[in-house]
């Protein structure tokens, strides 16, 4: 399965909204700092096909339908401001509709597998880094 450029862009915005950079009193290192685009390739290459399919369906819902139906904005996720993107994901997460609130959780879970496994993130959290090298996918996508 290949991904269109606008899908990659939208997903990188979703992940950098969920894991933003520069949070005070928290972890400053965000998704945008570590290059999760390469992790998307890793997922597409190795995750079960239904996961990749589910990720694409979820992304289209969030990127194209949710701005209108959740925020009342005629825009794509990419066309929203940073504050609006965050508000959109927060509203979804608070939804009483199970499948809607699972959308940001699904993105968070997948992104966390990449972001949260990086030695640089472990080091920022005070965890002794055991591996000599970052995961292979991160080496390919290092910035």
């Amino acid at each position: 399965m290949t991904w269109f450029g606008f899908e990659r862009h939208a997903l990188s915005l979703v992940w950098s909204t969920i894991f933003p950079s520069g949070t005070e009193a928290g972890i400053e290192l965000g998704a945008a700092d570590v290059g999760l685009d390469a992790f998307l390739d890793e997922l597409l290459a190795h995750a079960p096909a239904r996961v990749s399919f589910g990720l694409r369906v979820s992304l289209w819902l969030v990127a194209f339908l949710c701005p209108l139906f959740v925020l009342g904005r005629f825009a794509t996720f990419s066309g929203l401001s940073g504050e609006e993107r965050l508000e959109l994901l927060e509203r979804l997460q608070r939804s009483d509709v199970y499948l809607l609130r699972e959308l940001p959780t699904f993105f968070k879970m997948l992104g966390a597998l990449g972001y949260g496994g990086l030695p640089v993130v472990h080091a920022a959290l005070g965890i002794r880094v055991r591996d000599d090298e970052p995961p292979p996918w991160a080496t390919k996508g290092a910035r």
Binding site: L89, P104, A112
Partner: peptide, 13 residues
């Protein structure tokens, strides 16, 4: 951290 992140509340900051 990978699993804790999925379990921690919220998104963003």
């Amino acid at each position: 951290p990978e699993l804790a992140l999925a379990r921690l509340p919220g998104v963003g900051p």
